[in-house]
Structures are given as structure tokens and as C-alpha cells.
Simulated assay, not measured.
Amino acid sequence: MLHQITYLLFKLNLVQPSEKAILFWMHSLDVEKLEYALKHGNYNTRRLAAEALEHAGKCSSVPVLLHAINDKVQNVSIAALNALEALGCNDELVISITRKRFNWVKEVRDKEAKREANKGKKHKIYRWERASKKSFDRVKEQLKRPIR
């Protein structure tokens, strides 16, 4: 009863559903509420709803998950990708999209790991000396010496 009141208040934009409410909807296989939470929740609610749809979702929730792939928050899009892969609908378009997105996510994670690994390194930059600069410095030093 409490989770239904939470859903009603969520539809009125008064509260965001808690993790317990989303888990309850997942265990009761209430896919419609999870899809609504994925569309209209804040970033944490959207991530939790995508993770819940991974376990409770049906092939009918694929369009909502495909829309969630393009979310601005990276954790939400990754959770939606995981849910699409777990649903395993045999649609060639879904398979190709998830494969391309997983490659993109892997590239982003590799770049971040490389940046973190190189964070403490100091790069040596060699300056090449020009011959004219060397000769100019030599003449300058000679002029500083007293004439005998």
C-alpha cells in the first residue's frame, strides 16, 4: 500500500521513489512503474529503475531502455545498456546498438584509466638549441671579459 502511495506522489512530482520502492516494484514485476520511473525520475531513480528493469523487464520495455541509452548521466546509460543486454531480445537492431555503445563505454573507461595512470608522470620536454643562440651567448660572455 505504501509503495502505491509513493507511486501516486511520484506521478504528481512531489517525491522521488526510494530504493526500497523500486526494489518492491522489481520483485512484484511491475514493469509499468519502473518504466515511468526511468522516464521521469532524477538521475539516481533512473539508474535504479534501469537496473531493476534488467531483472524484471520484458521485451516490451526495450524502447524505453533504448531512449535511456542517450541519457546525459553516464551511469544511467550504462545501466540501460546492461538491462538491454540482459533482456536478450533477439532484435538485430538492439544487438548492434548495444555492441556499439559497449565499445564506446569501453573507450571512455580506457581513456579515464590512462589519464589516471599518467596523472603523476612528469613529461620531459627537450628544447633544441639553435646554433645562432649558442654563438650569441658565447659572444656575450666574451664581451663581459675585460680587454687586455
Rank of each mutant, 00 (worst) to 15 (best):
Q4F: 09
T6A: 12
Y7C: 06
L9H: 12
L9T: 00
K11W: 15
L12T: 05
N13V: 07
L14R: 13
V15D: 00
P17Y: 03
A21R: 06
I22Q: 01
L23D: 02
F24T: 01
W25I: 00
M26K: 08
H27G: 00
S28R: 07
L29K: 11
V31E: 01
Y36A: 10
L38C: 02
K39I: 00
H40T: 04
N44Y: 01
L48I: 00
A50K: 00
E51F: 00
E51G: 03
E51M: 01
E54A: 06
E54F: 04
G57E: 06
G57V: 05
G57I: 08
K58L: 01
K58N: 03
C59A: 09
S61H: 11
V62K: 02
V64K: 09
V64D: 08
L65Q: 04
L66W: 05
H67P: 02
N70P: 00
D71W: 08
V73E: 15
Q74W: 14
Q74E: 13
Q74Y: 15
N75A: 08
N75F: 14
V76N: 03
V76A: 01
V76E: 13
V76M: 06
V76C: 12
A80M: 03
A80V: 01
L81V: 01
A83P: 05
L84T: 11
L84E: 02
E85C: 08
E85L: 09
A86D: 01
N90Q: 12
D91A: 04
V94D: 05
I95F: 13
T98C: 06
R99T: 12
R99M: 13
N103H: 09
W104M: 14
W104G: 13
V105W: 11
V105D: 03
V105H: 10
E107M: 09
E112P: 02
R115C: 10
E116A: 15
E116T: 09
A117M: 15
G120F: 08
K121I: 01
K121P: 00
K121V: 03
K121S: 08
K122Y: 11
K124Y: 10
K124E: 07
K124Q: 10
Y126D: 09
R130T: 10
S132T: 08
S132K: 01
K133N: 14
K133L: 14
K133S: 11
K134H: 03
S135I: 15
F136C: 05
K140E: 06
K140L: 12
K140F: 08
K140Y: 14
E141G: 10
Q142V: 12
L143P: 14
K144P: 11
R145Y: 04
R145I: 11
P146D: 04
R148C: 02
